[in-house]
Design a protein around this nucleic acid. Structure first.
Length: 271
DNA sequence: GTCCATGTTCTTTA
DNA sequence: CTAAAGAACATGGA
């Protein structure tokens, strides 16, 4: 479900419910989504959340005392805040009980999970920089190190954090760059356009509270609306909203990839 | 039954 | 050795 705009929307919708709220208890319904396996979550009893933030596609919870844990939603993960009396949805794996509400993590496919970090200063060296605020020069340096297709390079969280299949396709279209363009061969001008396209695409997606294709909901159960504004993603065979040409679909790195052959010409592969 | 899915990580190949 | 491609993970919907 979740790329940066969806995760950000979950964070902003969870925050008012949990910051300052005391944890009455933690129900672990399915232990294998929680790590490390030997951590005792009952030690959180009686303590309060002091912050909720985002890093890439990860949601970072801080408990008073500077202890932290991270929730990753994987593909179908969902975080919801519901009144305790409301029945829990299927595949609910962990529940943080608050006074009259519950913060619930559910995830049918279980690609997501919850990781206890404690107070360890783990500056996640493997994760790339946040797109918001990223400078074109820095993006160029990172893309210059790989000969992979730009589509695959942008999906790599160690290159740039937070992008997934939807927003890579949308950003490449907005930048007019073919998904098969060799990352290290993009011109300075192309990287500049790409950097601006990524920021504007993410900013618009966040403003529309993310894209709901199937599973995604914010903490209050609301769907996003940005899927209605997609220009290429899942629009294979349909007319480009910019030039009316037919959107094409190909398989790249095992992921479906959508692009407009006119707006993102083959020629942009080795400009 | 088949294929496909918003993600990450481990394994295999070049 | 490294970089990149491919398979695997688990479930549900079309």
């Amino acid at each position: 479900m979740p790329e940066l705009p969806e995760v950000q929307t979950v964070v902003t919708s969870v925050r008012p419910h949990v910051v300052g709220a005391a944890i009455d208890g933690v129900d672990v319904c399915r232990a294998d989504v929680l790590r490390p396996a030997d951590f005792d979550w009952s030690t959180l009893h009686g303590r309060s959340f002091s912050d909720v933030s985002r890093r890439g596609k990860k949601i970072v919870f801080t408990v008073e005392g500077a202890d932290r844990f991270v929730i990753h939603l994987g593909m179908t993960g969902r975080l919801s805040v519901e009144v305790t009396a409301q029945a829990r949805r299927p595949h609910t794996h962990a529940v943080f009980r608050l006074r009259s509400m519950e913060l619930r993590f559910s995830d049918p496919r279980r690609f997501g999970g919850i990781w206890w970090l404690g107070t360890t200063e783990t500056p996640d060296t493997s994760m790339g920089p946040e797109p918001i605020g990223l400078r074109s020069q820095s993006l160029a340096r990172r893309l210059g190190r790989t000969k992979r297709a730009i589509k695959n390079a942008l999906l790599d969280q160690s290159v740039i954090a937070g992008l997934g299949n939807i927003y890579v396709d949308e950003s490449l279209h907005a930048a007019g760059i073919h998904p098969l363009a060799v990352a290290s061969q993009l011109t300075v001008e192309q990287v500049g356009r790409l950097n601006r396209a990524i920021k504007s695409t993410l900013r618009r997606a966040i403003a529309h509270r993310g894209s709901t294709l199937r599973d995604y909901r914010d903490a209050d159960g609301n769907a996003g609306t940005f899927q209605n504004l997609h220009r290429v993603y899942a629009r294979g065979g349909k007319p480009c909203r910019h030039c009316r040409s037919t959107i094409e679909k190909l398989l790249l790195g095992g992921r479906s990839t959508h692009y407009c052959p006119i707006c993102q010409p083959e020629q942009s592969r080795n400009e």
